[in-house]
Amino acid sequence: MSVNYYLYLSALLFTIGAVGVLVRRNAIVVFMCIELMLNAVNLSLVTFARINGNLDGQIIAFFVMVVAAAEVVIGLAIIMSIFRARRSASVDDANLLKY
């Protein structure tokens, strides 16, 4: 088995996450899809570290996790406040910023 399969899997998960962002309207689910994309990238990074024989990829994956945690905190807070104001968690309802 080749390590390339990890990368294929990563690409597949990333794509699924991206499509999920595009088709789902519940802001929380959209957020989950974004997390899925981040996780897919992390898998790639770990695999790259293995291919290149150093730990930098793992370090970057670690930083991605930290940043993702911060992002989740802020993102969910935003979703909360939007929900409080509009009684809706649909990303389509927050569309005032337009022509």
């Binding site: 962002v21 595009l22 088709v23 309207r25 990303v91 569309n95 910023l97 337009k98 022509y99």
Partner: peptide, 17 residues
């Protein structure tokens, strides 16, 4: 052209993809 600015984040995300 400004009609393309629908305000739907998902449309923007689509163009990003």
């Amino acid at each position: 052209a400004r009609r393309s600015q629908t305000g739907f984040a998902r449309s923007y995300a689509l163009s990003m993809l």
